[in-house]
């Protein structure tokens, strides 16, 4: 039997979130109470319980990235996509992210978990085209 964390990763990778039906099935298969699976699923920020918008854009807001202009990037994304942080529209969701360990290439953003480093407005402008 695989560990619960790895089972959840597999579901997250397959569906982009953790569907309720799948978790119920997992509970039956593993004999782990559903309340505990739900607990674990909601605890870790790497797991989503609901289907996500097409583009989830994360901007790292830890000290190295802020020192290298992360907040200006957020402003730029908000303006370009007419999008508020944590308030998704039909297509996109903009989030603050905690440090993902690429501080040596700050500032860092992610789009659907893919990491983009040494970000600036020019590069961002290109990346955001598909998100409009």
């Amino acid at each position: 039997m695989k560990r619960l964390l790895m089972e959840l990763h597999a579901l997250q990778d397959k569906y982009g979130f953790l569907p309720k039906k799948r978790l119920e099935k997992l509970s039956k298969k593993t004999n782990i109470p559903l309340a505990i699976i739900y607990s674990t699923a909601t605890f870790y920020s790497g797991f989503e319980l609901e289907k996500q918008p097409k583009y989830v854009i994360g901007v790292v807001t830890c000290p190295s990235c802020i020192a290298n202009g992360a907040l200006e990037l957020i402003e730029y994304i908000e303006k370009t996509l007419n999008l508020e942080i944590n308030n998704p529209n039909k297509k996109c969701l903009l989030l603050k992210l905690q440090c993902i360990g690429r501080c040596y290439d700050a500032p860092v953003i992610t789009i659907n978990k893919k990491i983009y480093t040494k970000m600036n407005k020019e590069k961002l402008s290109d990346l955001l085209k598909k998100c409009r």
């Binding site: 109470p33 559903l34 309340a35 505990i36 739900y38 607990s39 909601t42 605890f43």
Partner: peptide, 9 residues
């Protein structure tokens, strides 16, 4: 019984 457990963070 495990009807409830801490959820979220």
């Amino acid at each position: 019984v495990d009807a409830i457990y801490p959820a979220f963070k």
